[in-house]
Design a protein around this nucleic acid. Sequence first.
DNA 1: AATCGGGTGGCAATCGTTTGCCATTCTTTG
DNA 2: CAAAGAATGGCAAACGATTGCCACCCGATT
Lengths: 337, 337
Amino acid sequence: MTITDIARATGVAPSTVSRALSRPGRVNAATRQRIEAAARELNYIPNTQARALTSGRTQTIAVLVTDVTNPFYFGIIRGTQQELKSAGYANLLIDTEDSGEVETQMLHRMRPSLDGAILAASRLSERALVNLAAEIPLVTINRNVRGVQSVMIDTPSGVAQAVEHLASLGHNDIVYVSGPEKSWPNEARWTALRNTAARHGVQAHRIGRFPAARPSGSAAADAVVNTRATACVVFNDLLAIGMLTRLRERGVRVPEDLSIVGCDDVFGADFCHPPLTTVTAPIGKAGRVAVAMLLSRLAPRTPAHAIRRQVILPTHLTIRESTGPCRLAARPIISNG
Amino acid sequence: MTITDIARATGVAPSTVSRALSRPGRVNAATRQRIEAAARELNYIPNTQARALTSGRTQTIAVLVTDVTNPFYFGIIRGTQQELKSAGYANLLIDTEDSGEVETQMLHRMRPSLDGAILAASRLSERALVNLAAEIPLVTINRNVRGVQSVMIDTPSGVAQAVEHLASLGHNDIVYVSGPEKSWPNEARWTALRNTAARHGVQAHRIGRFPAARPSGSAAADAVVNTRATACVVFNDLLAIGMLTRLRERGVRVPEDLSIVGCDDVFGADFCHPPLTTVTAPIGKAGRVAVAMLLSRLAPRTPAHAIRRQVILPTHLTIRESTGPCRLAARPIISNG
DNA sequence: AATCGGGTGGCAATCGTTTGCCATTCTTTG
DNA sequence: CAAAGAATGGCAAACGATTGCCACCCGATT
């Protein structure tokens, strides 16, 4: 069923049908109803491709993640999916595999079929992002670049809470386990940790950079044990969970010998062993808000002041069982091999 | 940059450019190279929408899941994503929210923008599926319908292994914890369990139907405890993990008081507490194979005999720490409240 | 030398929808 | 009552690519 079929059925011109369906005020109410009835009866489905060709609007948003495997992005995907669906948009999922190049390339290639894109964890430089944003409506998640809409998850303030929590448990030597190199949030978390630590008179070191995946947990765990710190804050839960299994293998007890705090509170953080104390991030909400921001910008008659440049989402520390009082004396010394 | 720009730049007709780019043999080698060079230089990107309009091919495949939240589908999404990307196809993600109606509707609405669809866990009736398959190239996962391509994960044989494993540990009363009502694999798993149990002279019951989500684990756990069985096989890991936390709350020890076997071996099954004995399914592979099957059918010159109607993927039992010897006498009787 | 046919390339229609512009009709308004 | 202007609907040209058909050029065959 095309618009022309409906036109024939109702005895009007195709253009009238188009207008009746897409621009309500532009056509007589009576004719419009006739057209709408016919459309319903003939089970008309507008052809997205054809529409896109002239109008440029595709009703499709791309969601770019660095790794579909990472449960953090599950949350994002879920959030965007919900919001997009309810707005009648389609959801194009793109995995950039941690490569900024793939990121730009894909976006370039798909530009004509996209109304906009959500960048969860971009690996792009600031410049590249600004350039990209000039080409295609963009909202970033956890990436703060001037002139690009963004939703920031305020994990740093959660990390600060974590440090205070650890300090109050008597820890005075905290290690930060770094995530991947080009990750912006990684820096922000470390800075927050260092500053808060300084304020409370506790020592802070950082180790690594480790890929934010479970297998890297082994190396990270070994490295932490080596530092003789009594507590650590880890870039994200995935890595922390990886550490947990390695520590168990090595006989390091959590939290008795080492307290661990993760970040994000992803799927799994509450049922791993021990359940992880972590900075809970509103991941799904971040996805939903990102979509909402993008869509409100895309809407033709949104007044400029109604477009939010940036939304900051608060986080909080969720205390579970991977953190406990510092028992320095009780901690066994373990050879590193 | 459109095809016309390239035509102008090289002094040929747009149609020639089109042919040079899409149908190599049809145009003189020399001209083709000139055109290709120009295309590269002008950074030409074919407009998918326009192409779709005439040719019908959109280079887009929809992946339908019942619940983006379920880690089982993470695996599927990941697998399809990989395979689609490497084939140059775009990946449209659709969450059907467990509703067959949404399933058909979405597919209908998007039909013109889709080359095909992967149905992971369809909730549709056999008839509906066949009808749908007539409209749009389809591959189902874990759903066996005559005339529709499918990839089946042979979890039932894994369940049989699980039953044998439990029997060898001395359990002679096994409960199957049922998944959602319209789930096809659910029936298959129960059947496998019952048959294998009978062969080994162990009793088998089924309880529930529980939604395949973590929160339902509480009800499921209570129900299992009530049966006085010493071991259970659970529809999937997600539900099993939910049960684990509830059992801990109630002081039921796993595996000492109750052995638990899950299905799928999803993300989390190896680091929950205790790590779950489970039927490991090649989830990612299922996704990849599904895409490969679909794409080979879509390819214009695939000989009919090369199109696989069905692929069955084997599973195996992964024994971890949630199963152990039956110690009936030692099992405490716990009031159900 | 006339004919044939493969190899190339252009013309123009087409896909389904949108939209600028014009024509008509109807309603106001001075 | 005439003129202005709003409301309504149609025409036709896009959008960017694909593709059937035809024309032309050349070398080969008879």
